[in-house]
């Protein structure tokens, strides 16, 4: 058994392969499900000086 044929090295290879394919799978799935469209609203809303629930439209009784 050489340095490159230890069981743990094959374990590493299979792990890396799993991640590469997993990444591609989720990337494609995310693109198809529209996860990367229309998600920029929060960044504009966070700039408003928001007030807690009940404060916006007249005072809480």
């Amino acid at each position: 058994m050489g340095d490159y044929t230890y069981a743990s090295v094959f374990w590493m290879y299979s792990l890396m392969a799993l991640f590469v394919f997993g990444t591609l799978y989720f990337l494609v799935k995310a693109l198809r499900s529209g996860a990367v469209r229309d998600d920029e609203a929060p960044k504009y809303r966070m700039l408003e000086d928001d007030v807690p629930e009940g404060g916006h439209h007249g005072e809480k009784a």
Partner: peptide, 19 residues
């Protein structure tokens, strides 16, 4: 992510990239 846009009063470049 909170204080840079707030203090600069400019929206974050990309919410998508942050994800």
């Amino acid at each position: 992510y909170y204080f840079i846009p707030k203090a600069a009063e400019a929206p974050l470049y990309s919410h998508r990239l942050s994800m």
